[in-house]
Computed example of a mutant assay.
Amino acid sequence: MITKAQLKDLPEIKSLTEACATAMIKKGIYQWNEHYPSLEKLQDDIKDGELYILRENSEILGIIVITETMDEEYIPVKWLSANESNIYIHRLATHPKVWGKGYAQQLMDHAENFAKQEGYSSVRLDTFSQNLRNQRFYEQRGYKRLGDIYFPKQSEHPFYCYELLI
C-alpha cells in the first residue's frame, strides 16, 4: 500500500536510504552517501506532504517524493513541455533486499497515475549517469533523456534529466 509518510516513519525511511546508499556503493555507484539524502531533507519532504511510502506487512519497502517544485538545477534543461504543470520525482528508493521485485515500478505507477489524475502535463526526474540500471528502468517506461545537470556535493559525474509527457 502506498501512502503519504508521517514523521513517525522517519527513522525507518532514513534506515532504508542508508541501506540503499551502502548497496549502491558496493556496486560502484556513488550516487548517495552518508550526507544524501539527509535526515533533514527527508523530514522536510514529509512535512511538505511530498514523501510517499510503499508499505507491506507493516514494513516500509520503498519511498518516492512527488513534488511540483522545480529545482534551480533544472532551469537550463530543454524540457519537452512548458514549465507550468509538471511534477518532479526525487528520492525513489526501494530496500536492497527487494530490488528487482517490482516495488520501484509500483511507486512510479503511483506517481504517473497521480500526474494523470491531477492533470499535469508531464513527469520529470533525474538519475545518476553512472547508474545504468536506473537509466534503462526509466527509458523502458517511455521517459526521454534530455539534458545533464550536476550536483557537486553528491558527485563529479552528471545526472541525466528525463521527462515523460502525460
Rank of each mutant, 00 (worst) to 15 (best):
F151S: 04
Q43Y: 00
L107T: 04
R55F: 04
D109N: 15
N86L: 09
L61M: 08
Q43L: 02
T69E: 11
P37T: 07
L125Y: 06
Y88S: 01
I2S: 08
Y160T: 03
M70A: 03
E156K: 12
K144Q: 15
A23Q: 11
A115Q: 11
Y160A: 01
E139I: 15
N134Q: 14
R136Y: 15
V98Y: 01
F128D: 11
Q31E: 12
W79S: 07
G147C: 13
G62W: 02
I60A: 04
K47G: 01
V65G: 06
E40P: 00
D9S: 05
Y103Q: 08
W99F: 08
V123W: 09
L51T: 01
D126T: 03
K153I: 13
K144V: 15
E12N: 08
I89T: 03
I87G: 02
V98M: 01
Y143W: 13
T127A: 13
E56T: 12
W32T: 08
V98D: 00
N134A: 15
I46H: 00
G28W: 12
D44Q: 14
D126W: 01
K4P: 02
S129L: 11
P11G: 05
E156V: 04
E50K: 14
Y88E: 03
I25S: 09
E34F: 05
P96M: 02
W99A: 07
F151I: 14
H157W: 13
K144D: 10
G102C: 06
I25G: 00
N86Q: 11
K97F: 02
Y150R: 05
K8Y: 02
S155K: 07
H35P: 01
L80F: 08
T3V: 13
I89A: 04
Q135H: 14
Y30A: 05
Q130Y: 08
I29L: 11
